[in-house]
Amino acid sequence: MKTKGIPKFVIYLLLIIFTSVPLFFSIPVPGQPVDASADAFKALMNLKEGDEVLLASDWTGSTRGESMANMKSILRILMRKRAKVAIWSTADPQAPRVAQDVMAEVAKEHVEVDKQPAYKRWDDWIIAGYYPNADVAINAVAKDIRNAFSTRKETNPEGKLKSIFESPVMKNIKTVSDFDLIIDVTASKTSDFHVQFLSAQKVPLLFAVTGVMVPETQVFYNSGQCVGFLGGLKGVFDLEQMMENGLNIKGADGKVLTGNSKVTDEIPGFKGMSNKGSGTKYYPTLHFALLLMIVLIIIGNVEMFKAKKGAQK
């Protein structure tokens, strides 16, 4: 039953209005974290000072609305926890540069806005670079990380190029199991390869994926192959809310602002620090876009039933 319906340009125009206008206003949106986000927050907050984290940054500008926001929030927590972070990429040659830019931005905010001690390259974080062929590279890291990263170098504080294994970040790493947490901020299949090759290494895996990847990542979460994951913009929003309000922490009025029924631990956040970012900013926009989608679906169906009725007459 073919109907004429709303012209495409009207739909496009409506989408532009619905997604841009809310950006000019600060719209508070309620929302409780889903189980996967709460577990991800718990895993991040369980890190102690000096814990080593392998962070795969497998995203570029195309998914920055979700991936960059995820990456920034995760880095904020890692910096505040003073974790040692090794960043590497396998999905796209652009990824290390993008990760480095985000790291520079968050490190600057960490010092200038949050008034925290500097988070320094070499001492606190290193970049192990890009490896083509994600599956082979992740497999190599799983089997022998010292061999896989053997040629990678970073500059030490004296200005000399040294093996990354001489840095405080990697000096204790003999196998991939020595990491306290492995994180993959990804917009591609690298999360599959992480599960395939690293889930047997007894290291907790945590993913930050795009919205369209949520269903497939949910499978790994339900099976316990990853400790938690942040799914799309909702995941970023959840994390930012938990960073601001803590998880299951009661406010002055005795009410829990951000709570979860599965993860019942009381985990304080970082009240007063720069917690809210793109997730909180874009979440209302997502609401409007989804609302528009629902309305259009309803209109489409009403049109179809009307056309059907007309044809029957």
């Binding site: 319906g5 709303i6 495409k8 739909i11 496009y12 989408l15 997604t19 876009a289 528009l292 989608m293 259009l296 679906i297 209109i299 489409g300 169906n301 179809m304």
Partner: peptide
């Protein structure tokens, strides 16, 4: 996003 919205309107029936 534009294609998804347009497709949702036309195909989700």
């Amino acid at each position: 996003a534009f294609f998804i919205l347009s497709a949702a309107y036309r195909a989700f029936r």
